[in-house]
């Protein structure tokens, strides 16, 4: 294997390094199997017949291979509509998120910011106490946001959790000297932000972008509470309806027979739907992950 070919020009690694590498490989392979198996199971199930899934015959590879599940999924207009809406919310929601979070995090990363203590206290209180579903809803209703796209785009537009991570990244990975140098060259704060802080924090920022994006893509509760018009529903609402069909999360006085039958009826479509609704985010990850690898501080400070 190419990985193990000996390069005669390589510096001989100390033994401890080889042991370390060996250990790494074992752990990583273990990780691969432990997470990989159920993933394979879900994918295989999406290509198997409902009967095979029910009776537990699907173990690793698809049994009774069929595209019926996917056919079902794609014939629903609601699925396409949901896709389109989810995409919209994810893209624009994330843009708003990152915009606000960066604007928030940057000044807070400056240890000499006036009123810093006050801002910190403000933030801490929001982290600790939430007003609850009803009062928040009343507010948004008064603002006319209910049943509009803004209910989704403006919910959780600033995640304190993510903002704090960005702030930490700004603070700890960008030395003060860079700012001082830039200031001497005549840059103002905005320029510092855009020319220094953001480019040097690409890794963290990409991660947070991913966090926000996935958060939008997977979010269900906000949409459930605030949206009534089915043309605005994201994909997750439809997904949820199918996944919990017949599963009495609430006790119901209906006969078990009926619940069971409804549950069985959605078997075919369940796994295909899961795969279909997960793929876009995974694609997004592929796009974003190249930013993780870039080295950061090459050549920025001398000495």
């Amino acid at each position: 294997m190419a990985l193990f070919k000996k390069n005669p020009n390589k510096i001989i690694e100390p033994v401890s390094d080889r042991v370390l590498q060996g250990f790494c490989t074992v752990i990583i392979l273990l990780l691969l199997v432990v997470v990989g198996y159920p993933v394979v199971y879900v994918i295989s199930s999406s290509f198997s017949s409902a009967a095979a899934i029910q009776s537990g015959r699907v173990v690793f590879l698809p049994i009774d291979p069929t595209l019926a599940g996917y056919k079902f999924v794609f014939q629903y207009d609601t699925v396409w509509l949901g896709y389109r809406n989810s995409l919209f919310y994810t893209v624009f929601g994330t843009i708003i998120n990152m915009f606000l979070s960066i604007l928030f995090a940057y000044p807070l990363s400056k240890s000499d910011l006036p009123l810093r203590g006050f801002y910190n206290k403000l933030i801490v209180v929001t982290m600790l106490f939430g007003a609850g579903m009803i009062p928040t809803f009343i507010l948004k209703s008064k603002l006319g946001l209910v049943d509009t796209i803004w209910a989704i785009l403006l919910s959780g537009a600033v995640s304190i959790h993510n903002t704090m991570i960005i702030r930490t990244s700004f603070k700890s990975s960008i030395p003060k000297e860079l700012y001082e140098a830039a200031k001497i060259d005549g840059a103002n704060d905005f320029k510092c932000l855009t020319s220094i802080a953001i480019p040097l924090s690409k890794a963290t920022l990409s991660v947070i972008t991913l966090y926000y994006a996935v958060g939008h893509w997977n979010q269900y509760f906000t949409a459930m509470i605030y949206l009534r018009n089915k043309n605005l529903f994201p994909l997750q609402i439809f997904l949820r309806t199918i996944l919990t069909a017949g599963q009495s999360i609430d006790a119901s006085s209906v006969s078990e027979t009926m619940l069971q039958q409804v549950q069985d009826g959605t078997q075919q479509i369940k796994y295909a739907l899961i795969v279909v609704s997960t793929v876009p985010v995974i694609l997004l990850y592929f796009i974003v992950q190249k930013y993780f690898k870039k080295g950061v501080m090459v050549g920025s400070i001398k000495g």
Partner: peptide
């Protein structure tokens, strides 16, 4: 929502507002 507990929440919020 298809789940009656969620439907209850939805209606509770509508009534409250």
């Amino acid at each position: 929502s298809s789940q009656s507990s969620e439907a209850k929440s939805q209606i509770a919020t509508m009534i409250a507002a």
